[in-house]
Simulated assay, not measured.
Amino acid sequence: MIVITLTKVPRSLRGDLTKWYQEIQTNVYVGNVSGRIRDLLWDRIMKNIGQGEATMVYNANNELGYQFRTTRRDYEVVDFDGIPLMMHLNVATGETVHGFSNAAKFHKAKVMMKKRGNKVAQSQSEKVSMVAIDLETTGLDPTQDEIISIGAVKQSGDGRVDRFYKLIQCERKIPKNIVELTHITAEMLTSKGVSLSDGLQALQKFLGDLTIVGYNSHFDELFLTNSFKKVGQADLANRMLDLMPMVKKSDKFLDNYRLQTVLSEYNIENKEPHNSLSDAEATFKLATKLIENGALKI
């Protein structure tokens, strides 16, 4: 059991805590999370508390069965022969946290906007060469199911962006749920699709030696490897980067890490989910934002 009490903290911080704890009374939160999540949430409190105060009580292996943490300057947590106690101080310790007046907030916003402008200018002048790729398949088993579409978006060092999209003919019947999800039918593959061999050759030519980025890309890698083997062609030798672990590292408090959830967090619109080209476009934009905020280096 974990109990957190807050005083005069920003509303955004209170909103963060409600994802993990129940607010049983104004500014009193109760929950039961792992020690790792508890510590991460306390770090978030410390970073976003402003001039407010916070105290946390949680289970611990000591005589009392619980431990304290607090930011209050009129109390200090002391250890008395292994027993944690909250000692009231006659004179408050610590320094007042400045920088939360309207003027300070305005100045901070100007600085952040300037940094953002510099970052955008830098990203525009130094374009990163990379290619984002996505597949649609008849199912989830790379040894049995088949690729039905390939989408890719690449950027060269000069900033030029090119797109690749192929429907791939397949022998396997497309399940009804896949048709509903992707809007790809057997008739479309027959009339507009190319053979797997031709599609993979065209993809290799499009990719060149660029670094490939994808989201949860292990799935796509397995399908591509099996498909190249099936048609007797050499597998891709490109460097491949999966963006999911990078997002998990930089955004620890997302509700989940499905692509649509992550895109929403980064304000990226994907108008046609489960369309391989549209998903590749969205993945490319996500990679660009991760590069801008320093989470991804190519």
Rank of each mutant, 00 (worst) to 15 (best):
G139P: 04
L140Q: 07
D141N: 13
P142W: 00
Q144P: 09
D145P: 06
D145G: 13
E146K: 08
E146N: 05
I147W: 14
I148S: 01
S149Q: 12
I150R: 02
A152M: 00
A152Y: 00
V153G: 09
K154P: 02
Q155D: 00
S156Y: 14
S156M: 12
G157Q: 05
D158Y: 15
D158L: 06
R160T: 05
R163N: 15
F164Y: 11
Y165T: 02
K166G: 04
L167A: 02
I168S: 12
E171L: 13
R172D: 05
R172K: 12
R172C: 02
R172L: 10
K173G: 09
I174L: 03
P175H: 11
K176A: 07
K176N: 09
N177G: 11
I178Y: 14
V179M: 11
E180T: 10
E180L: 08
L181G: 07
L181S: 10
T182Y: 09
T185A: 07
T185P: 11
A186W: 07
A186M: 06
E187T: 09
E187N: 01
M188R: 07
M188L: 15
L189Q: 06
V194L: 11
V194Y: 12
L196A: 14
S197L: 15
D198W: 13
D198G: 00
A202R: 01
L203G: 13
K205R: 14
K205M: 03
K205H: 13
F206V: 09
F206D: 00
L207W: 04
L210I: 02
T211Q: 04
T211K: 11
I212M: 12
I212T: 06
I212K: 00
Y215I: 12
Y215S: 06
N216T: 05
S217A: 10
H218A: 10
H218P: 01
F219W: 13
D220C: 09
D220I: 10
D220N: 04
E221H: 11
L222W: 10
F223M: 14
T225C: 07
F228W: 15
K229A: 12
V231L: 06
V231Y: 07
G232E: 14
Q233P: 12
A234K: 15
A234Y: 03
D235G: 09
L236W: 08
L236Y: 00
L236F: 03
A237H: 11
N238Y: 03
R239Y: 05
L241G: 07
L241Q: 06
D242M: 08
M244H: 00
M246D: 01
V247E: 02
V247F: 03
K249H: 03
D251I: 00
K252T: 10
F253W: 04
L254D: 09
L254S: 01
R258K: 06
L259H: 05
L259E: 00
L259Q: 05
L259R: 03
Q260W: 01
L263H: 11
L263D: 13
S264D: 11
E265G: 00
E265S: 03
Y266N: 04
Y266K: 07
N267D: 13
I268W: 08
E269D: 13
N270S: 15
N270K: 10
E272A: 14
E272K: 15
E272W: 13
